[in-house]
Every structure is written in structure tokens, then in C-alpha cells.
Design a protein around this nucleic acid. Structure first.
Length: 276
DNA sequence: AGTATAACCTGTCTGC
DNA sequence: TGCAGACAGGTTATAC
């Protein structure tokens, strides 16, 4: 489900909703596979009960909860993970962190791919290195030079831009949208980009992600803000999941292809494979 | 190095 | 109504 803009929107809301609040308890639910992998949940409960939530941040597509007891929780929502702040446990609830004050923090996930890892401050120092998280496309510091350094090789741009070890924050929606915005074919080889197209791609990525964050993400089915509200960027999508519909720039028919198991969407008129 | 496929799971939608 | 198959916002392992 969530790409960078969705994770960022959740994090921004959590910052005002839960920072400074105290952990009263941690509740897990019966599932075949644990959200926590090898982590001893009882030990974790003992460690964090009574501690305070110090900060909520984003690293790549991970949500990082910093607790005053030298515990950091790194939550990755994968496809269908959801975070809610409310009184009652949502459907498919997998973890509840009970807090003082109004509403508890819940993590729900139909497909059970989401993960929650536990780190100490020392271990968090090289989190990006350990998880191989590439340059953050959502950061204000993300530059044209950053993009130039990662857009190389013979792979298609679609694959390179989705590769979180090179550039983090984009997912399938925003890769397709940014390439449409830039007028570049998703299957075009990364190394074939001219300086001019590189600049166009850079601007398209920044503009697309900025608008997506302003709209608080894209809700197709599962993605929700902690309040339960939906994002609104789905109203602004121009190619993603528009197969067979007319291109909003030229009227040609939007095509879909498969690349490495993922769908790519494009207009073959507006997004030529090579320069005219 | 690059590619493709399956795997992890459950739900929803489409077409016969 | 039923049932099979495709598809899903992510990531990882494995095999050509």
C-alpha cells in the first residue's frame, strides 16, 4: 500500500497525536506469523511500558517510533499495513500500543506482510546502511546530482526508480506518475537519458511527490491516515491504473505492460522509448 | 549485471 | 450463484 508520501503523511499526523504520550501496555493478537519475527514480545512489553514516545520519524518507507527507554520501533507497512489512533481495535489488528490520554495506537494488516523491528539508539545510527536504504526522494535535500548518480546502467528506468537501495520513497504509483509527467517511457534504459531528460525527470519526481504529500497520499483501498481519513491524490493520477483510457495530454490510449511482475502504465505517444 | 519468477498472505473484482 | 484466475500500493530469495 503505502509509498513515501503515504508513510510521510502518517508520520506527520502521529507527530502531533502521540509524541509525549506514555505507553501503558502492548497487546498482540493471534496470527500464524508474528509481526515481530524473532523479537520476544513479553520482553519488549516490559521494556517499553511506562516509557514515553519521544519522536516519530520516517526513514525510507519505515515509520520510526523513538521511545524514552532506548527502544526504537521500525514499522514497515508493506502492502496493506495500516496505522490507526482510536479507542477500539480495527479489523485485522495485529498490534495495539495502549497510551495514556485519548486513543490507542493500532497496527492492522490484512495480508500480514508488515513488520516491526526493535533497535537501540546505537543500532539505529547506521539503520540506512543496514537496511540498504538509498537517497531519500522526499527529502528537501534530494538533488539533481543525487538522481544523476543513481540513474545509470542498462535497467529500465521503472526498475531503477523502484529500487529502494538506490532511491527510496517512490513506489509503483509515483514512479509511473513521475515518468508520465516527464514524458519518458518507463522501459527506457536508465543510461540513455540525456542531461535534458534527466532534469525533466528530476523536476517531475519532486513535483509529483510534493503534490502527493499535499494531498496526503493516494487511497485505493487500504491506505488510511491514523484518523481513518483517506488520502486524495487518487483524484490527480494521470496514468496509474488507467489502462485503455485516453491520455490526458494527447488522447491516445494508455497502455499497460508487465515488468518484473509489476505493472507499468504509459502513453506511447507522450512517452517515446527514444528521442524523436 | 540484469531478468524473471515465486514467495510471503488475504481480499476483491472479472469473466465464463 | 459458483468458481477460476488475475490483480494488489512492497520486498526478498533464487535461479537462468
Amino acid at each position: 500500500m503505502p509509498e513515501g508520501p503515504e508513510v510521510q503523511s502518517i508520520v506527520t499526523d502521529l507527530q502531533s497525536l502521540i509524541v509525549g504520550r506514555r505507553v501503558l501496555d502492548l497487546v498482540t493478537y493471534e496470527y500464524t506469523r508474528s509481526l515481530f519475527g524473532e523479537v520476544d514480545v513479553d520482553e519488549l512489553r516490559d521494556e517499553i511500558t511506562g516509557s514515553e514516545i519521544v519522536s516519530v520519524t520516517r526513514r525510507g518507507k519505515n515509520i520510526i517510533l523513538q521511545l524514552s527507554s532506548d527502544v526504537y520501533l521500525a514499522i514497515h507497512l508493506r502492502m496493506t499495513g495500516q496505522v490507526f489512533l482510536r479507542d477500539d481495535a480495527p479489523k485485522y489488528c495485529r498490534l495495539t500500543i495502549k497510551l495514556d490520554g485519548d486513543g490507542d495506537l493500532h497496527l492492522a494488516d490484512v495480508r500480514t506482510f508488515a513488520t516491526c523491528e526493535v533497535y537501540s539508539a546505537d543500532e539505529m545510527v547506521d539503520f540506512e546502511m543496514k537496511k540498504k536504504i538509498g537517497v531519500d526522494a522526499l527529502s528537501p535535500a534530494f538533488s539533481l546530482r543525487d538522481l544523476q548518480s543513481i540513474v545509470a546502467g542498462k535497467r529500465p528506468l521503472h526498475a531503477v526508480l523502484l529500487d529502494q537501495t538506490k532511491i527510496s520513497g517512490l513506489g509503483n504509483i509515483y514512479v509511473n506518475e513521475a515518468l508520465f509527467e516527464a514524458g519518458i517511457h518507463p522501459l527506457r534504459k536508465a543510461e540513455s537519458l540525456s542531461d535534458d531528460l534527466m532534469k525533466r525527470l528530476y523536476k517531475a519526481i519532486v513535483v509529483t511527490l510534493t503534490k502527493a504529500i499535499k494531498n496526503r497520499g493516494t487511497t485505493f483501498s487500504d491506505y488510511r491516515l491514523p484518523s481513518g481519513e483517506m488520502g486524495s491524490y487518487q483524484k490527480h493520477l494521470r496514468v496509474f491504473r488507467r489502462t485503455g483510457e485516453p491520455c490526458l495530454k494527447c488522447g491516445a490510449t494508455i497502455k499497460r505492460e508487465k515488468l518484473g511482475g509489476r505493472s507499468v502504465f504509459y502513453c506511447e505517444k507522450c512517452q517515446p522509448l527514444s528521442e524523436p
